[in-house]
Simulated scan of single mutants.
Amino acid sequence: MAVQSLQEFLAASKEKDASPEAFELENPHLLEVRVDGLVWAKAGAMVARKGNVKFTRQGVLEQGLGNLLKKAVSGEGMQLMKMEGEGRVYLADAGKKITLLRLAGEAIFVNGNDVLAIEAGIDNKITMMRRVAGMLSGGLFNVRLSGHGIVAITSHYQPLTLPVNAQTGPVFTDPNATVAWSGGLSPEIVADISLGTLFGRGSGESVQLKFAGDGWVVVQPYEEVVLQAKE
């Protein structure tokens, strides 16, 4: 890259105001949120802010008893923070690529670690897969997002969407590389010792997610092992 003058660098890296939306990508790895009321964001994701914005962690009553029980069983959880007031907040998550999706009544499932921010009109509910006991370290809990509004999800590098239908048959994915899938799919956890050297790491037994039906699944070119949260 050519050497830039200070003025060239400041001009090239300054914040954009190209969109009237509440969520705007400043670059593929940095999200600007225009807070005017309430927005939910991943705890610890703020890198800068302007204006009068108050931050509070998601409360016990707001999470719901079902979500709390699932967090207790899994030993992990999607820790959200509430951003309230009026101002601008800049979010990022370990340099991961950010994708903005507008939901118009649809439902999607997202890996809990890959939810960066959601507008107030989006309902979030933690879901857990069957056969959860001790099979995976980071890919067991996911979040069902539904309603009307914009959600920001993250992935390591450029994600790939694979169609799931009767013609192509089921799709099998590495849980640690699975980012999201359509709301009509219910993945199963399956194990295949013979594929232990191809899928997954750290175990001779391959644990995979099996997607069958009609929909889609998003994967990333990276196996992200999520450490258990410490309360």
Rank of each mutant, 00 (worst) to 15 (best):
A45P: 04
L209E: 12
S74Y: 03
G44E: 01
G138H: 09
A191H: 08
E21Q: 14
T154V: 09
N111A: 15
G121C: 13
T173Q: 06
T161R: 14
W40G: 06
Q167A: 14
L116V: 10
V225S: 04
V110C: 07
T168K: 13
K97E: 10
V171I: 02
K230H: 12
K82L: 02
D174E: 15
D174R: 07
F55N: 05
A92D: 08
G215Y: 09
N124I: 07
L30D: 04
P159E: 03
G44I: 03
I118R: 06
E26W: 11
E62S: 02
P221Q: 03
T99D: 08
W181V: 14
A177N: 00
A191R: 11
V151R: 09
R201F: 10
E119D: 06
R88P: 04
W40E: 12
G147H: 04
S206L: 02
E32L: 15
A117M: 06
Y157G: 03
S206F: 06
I118V: 15
S13V: 15
K14A: 08
L198Y: 05
L65W: 07
F23R: 06
E205L: 11
Y222C: 00
H29Y: 13
G66F: 01
A22W: 08
G139A: 00
R57I: 09
K230V: 09
S74N: 05
L209P: 05
N113H: 13
A94F: 12
D93I: 06
E106M: 05
E62R: 02
I108V: 15
G139L: 10
R57T: 06
V3T: 13
E26Y: 06
A166H: 07
A104T: 09
E231T: 13
L198M: 08
Q208R: 14
W181P: 01
E231N: 10
V164H: 00
P28M: 06
K16N: 01
L69Q: 00
G44N: 02
Q228K: 12
M128Q: 09
V89A: 07
N67A: 15
P221G: 03
Q63F: 05
V89G: 00
